[in-house]
Design a protein around this nucleic acid. Structure first.
Length: 490
RNA sequence: GGGGCUAUCGUCUAGGGGUCAGGACACCGCCCUUUCACGGCGGUAACACGGGUUCAAAUCCCGUUAGCCCUACCA
């Protein structure tokens, strides 16, 4: 009987929800969904000095906006509530478990109390480095100088260190990177719990300790995380062994770099998911773009081969997702590709589906418009690259222009078209067909080309020579308002 | 400094001994056109470097270089 597939995304609430984190979460989510498993959101808030409730909320909201729903994890807006059988899902609320497990290690002699102060360690580090060596606690030149063999009791505050193996290699099996060997002597006895507040107290455990305990107790089958954690894995593996835990499968996914190949940071533009939302991107486009960095979907064993095949739905992504088709190397973030994906997804979405995403970018009066009007407004602007483009393209429908493109006025609102404009005011039926028929008749009467009248109208109605199809423009503005806007030119 | 990961068009990538090294985005050109766009068609463009192994290397091996990660009582 095989274990159920369980993945988890375990962000630290020390800042915005980074786009790289979202990608990791997306892979975890896709993998869980692909295998009918469970996806856990766990908050790693053991860094007391940097974690905040605000940041936890930002993570939850960002995940929700991206459509990355979790089966187990915190309940949005209620710090003391959670869903799932393995809670709580905030590490600071799991201290009792950690302390029990640390005591267990202490009792078995697999960990020890360390009373070395930061100052003394700094001194020893300097000495070792002065000799041109690498400082490692209780290794090499530092061997025997620390607390490893002193058997300190709990009478004084102490940090807890884990006894790491000193010989051989530690093998890290990985579904993406393959097998990697780390020499045991490149790792030292690391701290699993910070110095406690007083004698007998065990302080807040550190990340590398909590992940091992939590991943096991939450029955995580596949640890999918950024490859910046690959180097942490050989520290964690002996800990799994010390507890007698089974090893989960590991999959370290490559980092996302900025366009210049450097670590993705603010100077590359948007890094937090909230910024992508504000840019007018569809969550589905963000998901696809992120998924396609370092992952090549294979359809019948063949990589996608056309623009059409690039446009995968969530269902297809879930169906196709396979860690074996993931790249080992880091990928640069490509805003152009995201923009293109966004445009294509906007184009093919039913207007009703687009409406809730578009609404935040439109004036409040949008809500009072009739459904048919909304449908038309959306459909005739669905060629835009983003929701913000669409909103901008619809401005004319909400506000009377206050300024006019001078060059355009000069070029299109010529004395020869004004009589045609006057005739147009006589049209009363604003259905598409009637407008077209009326238009054609007016053009013939005044020997004008479509372009002449259409452009003149655009400038008079919108202030600039750019708008949706001219009949759409007229219909969206509405007859009364068309007449009002035309008045100043006649 | 030590340890680890990585390396095909500008970008994301396919390809894993014999391919004209394929696709997508971007870019350029042409066409369509009531504006802006959309759309259609076509084009430019890559195996980091140096050694091996082999009849044959982008592909396998070694080295170099470069980038990234870890080396915290951060995660």
């Amino acid at each position: 009987m095989s274990r159920q597939i369980v993945t988890r995304f375990a962000p630290s609430p020390t800042g915005m929800l980074h786009i790289g984190g979202v990608r990791t979460a997306l892979f975890c989510w896709l993998f869980a969904r692909r295998h009918g498993g469970r996806f856990i959101l766990r908050i790693e808030d053991t860094d007391l000095s940097r974690s905040t409730d605000d940041n936890i909320r930002i993570i939850e909201e960002g995940m929700a906006w991206c459509g990355l729903d979790w089966d187990e994890g915190p309940v949005v807006g209620d710090p003391s509530a959670w869903k799932g059988p393995h809670g709580p899902y905030r590490q600071m609320q799991r201290m009792d478990l950690y302390r029990t497990k640390i005591q267990e290690l202490l009792d078995k002699g697999l960990a020890y109390r360390c009373r070395c102060s930061r100052e003394t360690i700094d001194e020893r580090r300097k000495a070792v480095e002065a000799a041109g060596k690498v400082f490692q606690y209780n290794r090499g030149m530092d061997a025997g100088k620390g607390c490893a063999d002193l058997g300190h009791d709990a009478s004084e505050p102490a940090a807890i260190r884990f006894k790491m193996p000193t010989e051989g290699d530690i093998l890290v099996p990985d579904l993406i990177k393959g097998n990697t060997r780390f020499p045991a002597d490149s790792l030292d006895d690391w701290i699993i719990a910070r110095t406690g507040d007083g004698p007998g107290q065990i302080g807040v455990p550190t990340y590398n300790f909590c992940v091992v305990v939590d991943d096991t107790h939450m029955e995580v089958s596949h640890v999918i995380r950024g490859d910046d954690h690959l180097n942490n894995t050989p520290k964690q593996i002996p800990l799994f062994a010390a507890f007698g835990y089974d090893l989960p499968a590991f999959a370290h996914v490559p980092m996302i770099l900025g366009a210049d190949g450097a670590k993705l940071s603010k100077r590359h533009g948007a890094t937090s998911i909230t910024e992508y939302q504000a840019l007018g991107l569809l969550p589905s486009a963000v998901r696809l773009a992120l998924a396609r960095l370092s992952w090549t979907p294979k359809i019948d064993g063949r990589a996608v081969e056309s623009a059409e095949e690039e446009l995968l739905t969530d269902e297809q992504m879930i169906q196709l997702f396979d860690l074996a088709d993931c790249q080992k190397s880091a990928a640069r973030f490509d805003m152009d590709k995201l923009t293109w994906l966004n445009q294509k997804l906007i184009q093919r979405a039913p207007w009703q589906e687009l409406e809730p995403h578009l609404r935040p970018f439109l004036p409040a009066s949008w809500d009072t418009q009739p459904e048919a009007w909304k449908a038309q407004a959306i459909q005739c602007t669905q060629k835009g690259k983003s929701l913000t483009d669409m909103a901008e393209a619809l401005r004319f429908a909400f506000e009377r222009p206050t300024t006019f493109d001078e060059k355009a006025v000069e070029k299109f609102l010529t004395p020869t078209v004004l009589p045609a404009l006057r005739d147009l005011a006589a049209l009363t039926d604003y259905s598409h067909d009637a407008l077209e028929a009326g238009f054609t008749a007016i053009l013939e009467r005044h020997s004008l080309k479509t372009k002449d009248l259409a452009q003149a109208l655009r400038v008079a109605l919108c202030g600039r020579p750019v708008s949706p199809g001219i009949y759409d423009t007229l219909m969206l503005v509405g007859r009364d308002e068309v007449l009002a806007r035309l008045e100043r030119w006649l």
